[in-house]
Structures are given as C-alpha cells and as structure tokens.
Design a protein around this nucleic acid. Structure first.
Lengths: 216, 216
DNA sequence: TCTGCATTTTGATCTGTGTCAAGGTGGGGA
DNA sequence: TCCCCACCTTGACACAGATCAAAATGCAGA
C-alpha cells in the first residue's frame, strides 16, 4: 500500500476556514494549489498568523487529534488529504515517510525561528520586505526559476492577512507598501500584483544577511 | 549498542557560548542541569533569542552539520553529549529514537509558534508575565510539583537575556518587573529570586486562555 | 453601465516602548 | 572590611507604529 492509495482531494474558496482551533482532526493534508494560513487568536480578538502554507506544505500532526490552530484559505485552495488513521498506519510501516516528516518539521521549525527574529526585532519596513521576499522565493521555486533579478508576484494575502502575519496593523502595512513603492523597491499594479525590479535590493531592505535567509 | 554507550558529559560556565552560529556541529546534546539560550544576531547587532533550553531539552540536528544559532549558557550548565556520527548511526537502526525526536521537534515547533503570538501581539507586561509563567511551569515540572497556587523561582536569565527573548529592551523589562511587583503579581528578593503568590493571577496577566498555554 | 460594499489608502493624533542618561545595589576579591 | 564593577532601576524625552477617521478604489452583481 502506498500514500497514493489512501489520498483524496478537497477544494476550498478564498476566505473559507478549513479547520477551527480545537476541532478534531480527521485527516492530514498537503497543499496542491493555493495558499492557506495557520493562525492563533487571543480571547480579545488579537490575531497572529503562525505559518503560511504554500503548495507542497503539510498540515496536521500524526499522533495528536485536535487542531492547535485555525487553518484559513487565503486564495482558492486545493488540498490533497489522507485520513489520519490509515496515514499513521502507513507511517508506522514505512520509515521513509517518518523520516521525511521529521525533515519537513525541522524546516518548519527553522522558518518559525526566522519569524521570531522578524517579529521581535525588525522594523515595519523590514517586515514587509521580508514577507515579499519569502513569497517571491516560494513563487520562483514553484516555477523552477532562480530567485534573482526582476521578479513578478501576485500577493496571496490581503493587507489585513499580511498585518496578522507581520504583527502590524493593516494601516501600517499599507503605508509601508506605499513607501517601498515610492522608493522604487517595488512597483504596484492594483493591490495584489507586485513587480520587484531588483531582488537583491529587496533582500537588503529585509535586513537579512546577504547570503539569503530561509533556504527552500 | 545504546545511547548510554556513546555519551559523555561537558560542563560550561554561566555566560559561556557553547556553539557559534555557522560552526561545524560535532555533537548533539541534551541539557542535564542549568539553562541555555538559542539566539540569532543580525548584522547590526540586534539579537533575538529563539529558544530556551531547560534540563531534558535537546540541541542539534542529525543530518545537518553547521549550527544555525548561537547557544549560550545563561547559568552554569551540564550537557550530555553524543558525537554526531554514532548518534546518527544509532538513530538509523533504532526507529524508537527517531520517533522520539520527531515528537520533541513537534513540541518545539508548538513552543516556537506560541512565542510568535507573544512577540507579534502581546504587550510588554503580558510578555514578562508569560515568561515568568513558562519558567515557573518548567521549574515545577522538574520538581514534580503542580504549577498552581504559590510558587517560588530563581530566574535563570539576566534582564538583558529576558529582553532578547521577549523582543524588548532591558529597560522596559526592568520597568515591567517593577510594575508587576508594585501590583502584587510578584514579589522580588534581590534581582533573580521571584515569588509568585498566585499563579492563576500571573496567567491572567499573561493574556493566555485560562486553560493554561503550553503543555509540559 | 451603474451601484454597493469590501478593501485599501491617506491623514491627524496618540501612546507604548525605545533611547539616552544618571544613579542605585550587591556580591566577590583584595 | 571596603571597594569595584557588573547588573539593575529610574527618569526625561523621542519616535515608530497604533488608533481613529475619512476618502478613494475597484470589483461583483443588478
């Protein structure tokens, strides 16, 4: 038996919440197309996004059965799902899958820790530049293109979703986007379509070491 | 062959850096006694602590050989080390160890994501209360006592180390510690010895759901 | 095409935390 | 015992980003 034998697909519309924090998780899944967020909400409504899910990213945790976060589609989304029990059984019999899962989890941990630095120490402008860089890198890697020179992306997030990920307000996000446009770091057509004329310049603005930040 | 057969011990003094970011990692290790931090430093010196290591916590990553963070002893520290190669060999032969490592990594990921909420959305006062709660929980669990009612802890961190973990300045940390003392949430003897007369009150100040935050 | 509403931008002002600058405090070594 | 120095506290002021408030944009549906 292989993973292919137990998989099925589900699609969701932009804005839909796939999973509520505290829900029983019946499946694990990976993103096929589209983008989703993992987010945590405080009692008074303050919201922090704790992870972005791009195509190929994995959600769900074998061995635990209630969801720790809200999972929300920020674009139309297609997920490839596996019922949890068969997936766990398969994992127990196939060390390769467990190994791969450990590797992915370690990468997620690195990404989370990169984000700790961003939230704890970066300015609003650096935060925006960092987010644009991450989206551009993921987008380039999907298209099997190098993340360098001139890049064009469509932001998969509203200004509010960006704010929730960056620990800012949507007004500050909007102002800093305008400032980066004014300074020629980006060009905007509409609200979502972004041209990055010089990726290295964007990386400088992000305050990351010049060697390039998050791998993958 | 077992883990016991390949382990050895090393001790470090408070303030010592065990591992520099970028160093070749010759070993993986776990904390026996004392506390250490994982931290990331930007080119201009801004520092963010991305993890606290208490007794039983694990450092190092089978499969990667350069350290991604600085590891610094914040108290006198005893580590139990395993040379990386033998550890990896053992892991390949012993699925149980890999399984345990995945579990620990998932817990670390949860802790990192809890910290994202703290850094992105909590006030300075909530941040301090959250840190005190985490230290108190870990300390209680070491002593096999329930984390409730009246608790007494010795902070394993200087004000500056607290600031680096909380994304604040040391002055703000100091002011908020004084404010929590003034408001009767904590009592201070010296700079490090803290009495928490009512743990539930502290949790409220931390802004966490009343059910109690990070397990373990 | 026009309308309505969600989303975004921009402006004015406020505030929490950072920055700069003095003092305090206490524990280890002479 | 006393002094020194690292660590901490407190004060005054500055500023990045939050908050409150309007206006502009642009897309979906009539």
């Amino acid at each position: 038996m292989s993973l292919d034998a137990i998989k099925y697909y589900r699609s969701f519309e932009a804005g839909q919440t796939l999973i509520w924090s505290g829900d029983r998780m019946e499946f694990v899944a990976s993103v096929v197309t589209g983008v989703a967020t993992l987010s945590q909400v405080m009692e008074d409504g303050r919201t922090q996004t704790v992870g972005l899910l791009f195509p190929s990213d994995f959600v769900g945790r074998p061995g635990r059965d209630t969801a720790p976060y809200n999972v929300v589609a920020t674009t139309d989304l297609l997920m490839c799902c596996f019922r949890k029990k068969p997936f766990e059984d398969l994992m127990a019999k196939t060390p390769h899958i467990a190994q791969r899962l450990l590797e992915m989890t370690l990468d997620e941990l690195d990404a989370a820790r990169e984000w700790l630095l961003l939230l704890g120490r970066k300015t609003a402008r650096e935060k925006i530049a960092s987010l644009l860089a991450i989206v551009a890198r993921r987008d380039a890697s999907l298209k099997m293109l190098p993340a360098a020179g001139k890049l064009v992306i469509d932001l998969p997030l509203t200004r509010e979703a960006m704010a929730d990920y960056l620990g800012l307000t949507l007004e500050t996000v909007s102002r800093q986007m305008s400032a980066l446009k004014r300074d020629g770091v980006i060009e905007l057509e509409g609200k979502r379509h972004v041209t990055i004329p010089n990726f290295d310049r964007l990386i400088e603005e992000a305050g990351d070491d010049t060697d390039g930040g998050i791998p993958g």
